[in-house]
Design a protein around this nucleic acid. Sequence first.
DNA 1: AACCAGGTCGTGA
DNA 2: TCACGACATGGT
Length: 304
Amino acid sequence: MNKNYIIENIKDFHLRDVLECGQCFHFERIDSGINPDEFEYEIVAKDRILRIKEEPDSEGVRLTFFNTEKWEYDTVWKDYFDLDRDYAEIKGYIIEADPRLEDIIYENSGIRILNQDFFETLISFIISQNKQIPQIKQVVKNLSSELGSKFDITMFDRPDLEFDAFFPTPEQLNLASEDEIRSSKCGFRAPYIKDAAEKVYNGEITLEMLSKLDTDEAREVLMSIHGVGEKVANCVLLFGLGRREAFPVDVWMKRICEYMYYDEADTPKAIIEEDARKRFGKYAGYAQQYLFMYGQKHKIGIKR
DNA sequence: AACCAGGTCGTGA
DNA sequence: TCACGACATGGT
């Protein structure tokens, strides 16, 4: 009990940027914010609840996984945080594809793309349409609290948890009525969530079948869900199915890419996606995340 | 008080 | 194909 696991000198990692870059929603910052170099978060993922802290270190950062055994880090969190990946290679590849991204990557050098649960990613990004990130987080929290399995609080080393339940399983969401789903404040997305839960629960769409398909085929299958279009499908591919060549184009990416590549001219999202995938190839998804963070920080293309 | 938000669907040219 | 309004909810 209360054994912490610590890893040191981690490069290309910034906990805040990893979590706050809009790829995941079931987490909360829990430190005071007094020390600008320290970050502590509570994350619900991988059928677990993790408390994790980041501090500066001589060659990068030190991460403390609270109440975590070494085997849990090795078999669960290492993969979840994409820590097996060589980000120096990824960055080099992207900069070679477009040298103008060097500064952008430098500014956001701690981003990683998480390897998240497929079903949770699917539902989360269905919720994300026409919503801002704080609201998405709230709906994910409500859905979990109302329909997911509750934690055994006695398992944890502190009583004041931000969350009280796991994200609902396909079965739990499929069993819920549309009204129950609506009480999470997901609004008009309730039937979309219903349809997704149904198709996954009854085996019409499975992780196994999607893994056998190439990215474009898998996207078609995902888009057979009512309420899943190009953008949501691409997010599921990138964040929930490990398809790092996927390049989701939302309003932000549209503005950023028009600014970067089309002389500010109005350009269809499909063209932007196609060109980006040609330009950035197998790492288009990483390029997308760096560009997204950059665009948000500097409000690229926002008119006033 | 309108208007917008990591969109998608349905409709009508 | 393509443009456009509707869709819940909450925040400026």
